[in-house]
Amino acid sequence: MSTSIDTLESVGPSALKRLQSIVGNQQFILLLVLVALVIFFGERNSLFFTSSEFSNLLIDFSGLALIAVAETYVIISGGIDLSVGSTQAISGVGGGFAMQSLMNHHMSETGVLLIGAVICAGIGLVVGAVNAVLITKANLVPFVATLVTLSAGAGMALVFSRGAPIGQNPEAVAWSATGIGPFTWLVIIVISITTILGITLHVSKYGRNNFAIGSNSFAARAAGINVKRHIASVYMLSGILAGLTGMFFYIRSGAGSPQVGASSNLVAIAAVVIGGASLTGGVGRITGTLLGAGILTIVTDGLIFINVQPTWNQVVVAAFIALAAVLQSIRPGLRS
C-alpha cells in the first residue's frame, strides 16, 4: 500500500514539491483569490468599494453562510444534504403563514419575528429529522434521502403557498436594514451563529467525532462513538440552519417565498468543496468553507456589478469548483 506522499515523493522534482507546500495551505490560496477578486471588480467599477456595496455583500454572504456551515458538518461526516435549499422555502412559507396569523392578532413586531424564527427553525428541524430517519433507520444513502426531502419540501412549499409569497411584512424589511454601520443585525446574528458552530467543529468532542465518523465510521463506532445518533444530529442541525436561513430571507424580502433557495444547496456544497473539504468525508475546515462562500458571493455580486449577464454566474461558479478540485488533487498526503 503506498500513500500519495510516497508516489509524489518518488516523482521527486523540487518544483512540484514547492508547489505542494504552497498549495498545501489551501486557506492561504483562497484568501489570495478572494483579495484578487475584490481588486478585479473594484478596478472595473469603483462603486464596488463603497460601504453600501460592502453591506450588500455581507447580507448576501449571510444568506449563504448558515447552510454552508451546515453542509460543512454534513460533508465532513461523510454525507451530503441536498435539501437545504427547499427547506428554506418550506420554512419561509410555513413561518410566513404563522407570522401572518400572529400579525392578524396584533402581536408586537418583535414577538412576531421571534416566534417566526422559532417556527422556521422548528420546520427545518422536522425536515432534518426526516432525513435522519431515512438515513439512520431506513438506511438510505444521504444523497437519495435528502433528494427525497428536497423534492417533497419544494413541492409542499409551492402547494401550500399556491406559488405566492406568504405573510407580507414590510416592517420586517425595515428592521432588516438596521444595525451597526455596514453590519445589520441579521448579519451580526448570522456571523455569531457561524462563529460558535465553527469553533465547535474544530475544538469540541462533537466536532472531533464528526471528523472521525467521516474518516472511518467503523473506527468511530469501535471507539465507542454512537455513530447513528451523531449522524442523525448532524442532519437535524443542518435542517435547523436551513430553517433559520428561510427566516433570514423572510425578513429580507418581507414574505416567505416558495421560490427562495432553489439552487442554494449546490452553491453551499460548492463553498464547502472550494474550502477544501473532501466529499468522501473526514476532511474540511470551517475557515475554508467561509472563504469559499465569500468567494462565491463576491463573484455573484461582482458579475452583476460589471454588467455581465447573470446567466454566466453558474459557469463561473463551476470554474471555481473545478479549480478547487484541481488544488485538492495536487495537495500532498490527502488520502491514500
Binding site: G214, S215, F218, A220, G224, G282
Partner: peptide, 24 residues
C-alpha cells in the same frame, strides 16, 4: 480493548486524535 483486523483507525485524524478517540 480491541485491535481490529480491518483498520480501527481514522486515517484523516492525527495519531494523537486516534489514540484518544472516544476518550477525549
Amino acid at each position: 480493548e480491541t485491535l481490529y483486523q480491518d483498520s480501527g483507525l481514522a486515517p484523516d485524524l492525527t495519531i494523537g486524535a486516534n489514540i484518544f478517540l472516544g476518550r477525549e
